[in-house]
Amino acid sequence: MKQTFFVLCLLSAAFTPVYVGVVFFGFTPEHRCFSPGVAELSQRCGWTLVEQLNHTVPEWDSHGAAYSSRCSRYEVDWNATGVSCTDPLGSLVGNRSSVPLGPCQDGWVYDYPGTSIVTEFNLVCEDSWKLDLFQSSVNVGFFIGSMIIGYIADRFGRKLCLLITVLINSVSGVLVAFAPSYTWTVIFRLIQGLVSKGGWLTGYVLTAEFVGLSFRRTVGIIYQLAFTVGLLILTAVAYVLPYWRWLQLAVTLPNFFFLLYHWCLPESPRWLITQKQNDKAMEVIKRIAKGNKKQLPSSFQNLKSEDENGEKLKPSYLDLVRTPQIRKHTFILMYSW
C-alpha cells in the first residue's frame, strides 16, 4: 500500500510544470527595441552597455526615476556617416528633445542568456496579452477536463482514466516542446490542460479510496505536499536549463514512465464494488492486506461473487445535487474554489 501511495505522489509532483510552469516558460526579461546600426556604432565608439543605452534608448521619467523604453525607439539612421560618439543624437537631429519615436519594427533585444516563449515569439508590448492567453488556455483546459475526466473515472474506472490522461499529457507535452509557432503552442498547451488536472484529481481519488476514513486527511495532505516537492524540483531544473524547449522536454519525458502504472497500480476496490465486480475487488483487497501483513476482517467475507448480479451504480452529474448533504458539500466546494 505504501508503494502504491508513493507512485501516486510521483504523479502529483510531476503535475507542477503544467500548473505553474508559465513562470519559467513565459519568463519576460528586460528588453528594448532592436535598432539597426547601434551595435556597430557602439563597437566603433567603444561604448559600455550603459553608455550605449544612455545614447540610443529613449527614456521616460516616473516619480523621479528614469526607465529605458521597452516599446519605442528613436527614429534615426544609426548607420549614417559622421555620427558623433559623444553626442550621437545631437549630431543626427540637433535637438535631442525633438527626436521622433517609433515602434519596434525590427524586433527586440532581450537581456537574458536563455530563451522563453516570450523571447522566441516576441510576446511583449502590444503582443504581451498573448502570454496571458498561453496560461489561460491551460486554465480553460483545467475547467473543462476536471468535469469530463471525473465522469470518465466514475464510468470506466480510475486506473484506465489515469493511464489515458498520462498518455495524452505526455504526448501533448512533447508536442509543446516542438511546436513550430505560437498558435500550435497554445493548442497543445490547451490539450495538456484538458487532461493533466483531471489526471491529478484521479490520482487524488485513488489515494483516498485506498485507505480508510481515518487516514484520508493525512494521505491527502501528503499528496499535495508532493506537489510542493515537484515545485522545488522544477525550480532547480529551470535553473540548469534556461531554454524553454529543453526545459519542457526535461519535465515532460519522465511522465512516460507513469504508463508503467498499468502493471504496478491496482484499480480502486471501492470503484470495483460499485460496479459489482466483487471478485476483482477481493483480489485487490487481499493483495493490499498481504503487502501490509494484515489479516482481512471477517466483514469482507460478505463480498460474495453472487452479489455481482445486482445493478451497477451509474455516475451522473445530478449526483452532485441529488441529496441535501451532497448538495451542501458541492456548493461549499464550488464557493471555496
Rank of each mutant, 00 (worst) to 15 (best):
Q43H: 10
R158Q: 05
W47E: 00
W246I: 12
A289N: 05
R44I: 07
H31N: 10
I191Y: 04
Q105M: 11
F5A: 07
V176T: 07
F257G: 02
P297K: 12
S146A: 15
S35Q: 12
T4I: 11
G198W: 02
Q295K: 14
F121K: 06
L333Q: 07
K276W: 03
V229D: 01
S170Q: 03
I222C: 07
V38L: 06
L259V: 04
V166P: 00
P113D: 08
L231I: 07
V251S: 02
V57G: 05
I332S: 08
H55L: 07
L175P: 01
I187P: 03
H31F: 15
E306K: 13
E59H: 14
S128N: 05
I285L: 14
L265T: 01
F25V: 11
I117H: 12
S214F: 12
Y335E: 02
T4C: 11
R217G: 13
D87T: 08
M334R: 11
G26N: 08
Y243H: 13
V251E: 02
P29V: 09
Y112A: 03
G64F: 08
D132I: 03
T165I: 06
V76Y: 04
L175H: 03
K312T: 11
L318Y: 09
D154K: 11
V219E: 01
L241S: 06
L241K: 12
C71A: 10
H31P: 05
R70A: 12
Y335G: 11
F188V: 05
K130D: 03
L213V: 13
N169Y: 14
S62P: 00
V174P: 01
N139H: 10
S137T: 10
V38Y: 09
G82D: 04
D319N: 09
A281S: 09
V99Q: 05
L313H: 11
L333D: 00
R189D: 02
L131R: 08
W246F: 14
A281R: 01
V240A: 14
R245L: 10
L10N: 00
L247S: 03
W60H: 15
A13P: 00
Q301K: 15
E51K: 14
A208G: 10
V237Y: 07
H55Y: 13
F256Y: 09
F210P: 00
L313D: 01
E283A: 09
